[in-house]
Nucleic acid binder design. Sequence first.
DNA 1: ATGCCACTTGACCAAATAGTCAACATCATC
DNA 2: GATGATGTTGACTATTTGGTCAAGTGGCAT
Lengths: 191, 191
Amino acid sequence: MEQNTRQKLIDATYEEVYSHGYQGAALADILANAGVHKGSMYHFFPNKKEMALSAIKEKIAERFGTRYLAIAKGEGDYLAHFFEGLRDLKQRDFRRGCPVANIVQEMSNIDEDFNVAMKEIYAKFRQSIKIIFDKAVSVGELRSCDTAKLALFTTSTLEGAILSAKASGDAQDYLDCVECLISYIESYTHE
Amino acid sequence: MEQNTRQKLIDATYEEVYSHGYQGAALADILANAGVHKGSMYHFFPNKKEMALSAIKEKIAERFGTRYLAIAKGEGDYLAHFFEGLRDLKQRDFRRGCPVANIVQEMSNIDEDFNVAMKEIYAKFRQSIKIIFDKAVSVGELRSCDTAKLALFTTSTLEGAILSAKASGDAQDYLDCVECLISYIESYTHE
DNA sequence: ATGCCACTTGACCAAATAGTCAACATCATC
DNA sequence: GATGATGTTGACTATTTGGTCAAGTGGCAT
């Protein structure tokens, strides 16, 4: 069988919400892009909101898995791999920004279900960065320090850097921020 | 005369857009909160979008004036005043986040008019922080450095910190980020 | 007082919105 | 091949959306 209906909906919903926000995502457009009829959608999901929440959770979990968890599972050079990922522009879409940040900004204070979902996702993001730093500490790439706070600062600055690039339309702003961030993290390298 | 109709609309629109985003801002709610009738609104503005753009530009210009420009116009202790402002939680609303960031995230990639408006506002924000750093350099509070890049990093990190606090619902996350940021900026203090 | 103009009123409209539903198709299992 | 579960179709509805407009009001200048 080709890609099943549910997955087509999840993919199309994620794209639409990423591009237009949750409130701006029109059900009709999602259905058209997925090539699925309305009644069929309501067979898989009770409503638009639950479909969007499912899409966000599933697609972003997928994203994390490939991007950050892979680094922590590697063998050494944790920081180097992490920095390399940050500098890689190909994996970022500055026009649309960070999907997590977009939805946090739009929905966290509007809807409680989105609030808890995004809280969890964001916490997982911070946690996966912390794990990379913990590994780095364990092999002596970083000196012993409060890796939770360092992870908080890193994720925050990263989100801010993506935002700046989205606002200015200039990817160089992202790169400049990342270099500052890296030099900050490297200040924890030396004893 | 009491507060005029146009200003009531601007204020109500800003509040509504800040709380619910532009796409989530219902004209009916804005009108109800402003206590203004629909036709009256269309006397002052050609449509919802222009009203929202006006509200954003006017209210945020007001915000900058009182917050950051005041520091640069002061007499010395530029950095200290700036840091003090960053640490002051009273002037921030973590539930709703940063009004500038919210709209950048929601609208920059959706609508060209919003894109240029937010680009300009964000640039002005960075510029006003740069001016503070330039002043700090001029009186020796900072060593000579690329203040434009430092301002970029500062605004980015600040926006990221506000986002983190919004996501986690914990203002302490903001404070922790700010302390990291301050210690980074202070590394430019010494020769 | 008259005429003018900025402003107000609220009923009205077309379009878009999320969501419903009864009929239908497809398939595996007995 | 009958049965029932799973999935599909698209017309339909109720509501909300931003936007229009003709009629009215109030004050100000002549």
